[in-house]
């Protein structure tokens, strides 16, 4: 059963060393308030899973700058120079994963699948150390499931049953991360009564969501 709470009630649930999946694509669709509160909490040693590491002052990047991340699993780190700097200094481990493979590994983690076969990365460094399987004459890399202890996701609207509506390009990794984490905290701009969201319009089913917080950016 979903609970509507204040950020100070949920941030203590994120503890040192956790793997935390954070939604967003270059900070669009990232729960900025939750990230800010996490920065203030000074929780440390996190493994962060996200499409990218945002910008130094926006999105997931703020947690890199504040040095709360020991490992980042992402497809792109180029927009945040701090990530590369810490990686080169040996202070941060970065696992670069092709974007579509990252999505599928999370989907496997959330969908009870033991892995996925993808042609992406064949013949590149991404294939190093991975099993190559041939199916019907076509080679594929075996990519393994990825899960997080917690997911911090963003949606435009929630109802009081936890159903979420993501809008435009702000969905990105948020729905799949809601599947692939033990604890799911959604930051939303607006909360409406149960029943006000058409069932057909739900992007993330409420049964996946544990906590909802308001972003403070709602109209």
């Amino acid at each position: 059963m979903v609970k509507i709470v204040k950020t100070e009630d949920v941030i203590p649930l994120i503890t040192d060393g956790m793997a935390v999946a954070i939604g967003g694509f270059l900070a669009v669709g990232t729960p900025e308030l939750l990230v800010d509160q996490l920065v203030d909490s000074q929780v440390t040693g996190l493994t962060v899973i996200g499409n990218d590491t945002g910008f130094p002052d926006k999105g997931i990047g703020k947690l890199i700058v504040s040095r709360q991340v020991k490992k980042a699993i992402a497809s792109h780190i180029g927009t945040n120079p701090e990530t590369g700097k810490q990686m080169n200094a040996g202070e941060l481990t970065v696992e670069l994963v092709p974007q579509g493979t990252l999505a599928e590994r999370l989907r496997c983690g959330g969908a009870g699948l033991g892995g996925v076969l993808t042609p992406t990365g064949l013949g590149t460094v991404v294939a190093e150390g991975k099993e190559v399987l041939t199916v019907a004459g076509q080679e594929y890399l075996l990519e393994t499931p990825l899960r997080a202890d917690a997911a911090l996701i963003k949606a435009a609207v929630a109802d009081k049953s936890g159903n979420l509506v993501c809008r435009r390009a702000a969905a990105n990794f948020n729905p799949v991360m809601a599947m692939a984490a033990d604890l799911v905290i959604a930051e939303v701009d607006k909360i409406v009564e149960t029943g006000e969201i058409e069932p057909d319009h739900v992007t993330v089913p409420g049964i996946l969501v544990d906590y909802i917080v308001l972003s403070g950016k709602g109209a």
Binding site: D52, S75, I77, G78, P98, Q99, G100, P119, V126
Partner: peptide, 25 residues
């Protein structure tokens, strides 16, 4: 037909983003 466009070792490692999926699909 090999393509390299996502990193220069020792200089810049932005990451592959979606490029590896795009060229394979």
């Amino acid at each position: 037909g090999n393509l390299a466009n996502w990193m220069v070792p020792g200089k810049i490692v932005p990451g592959m983003g979606g490029a590896m999926d795009l060229v394979s699909g």
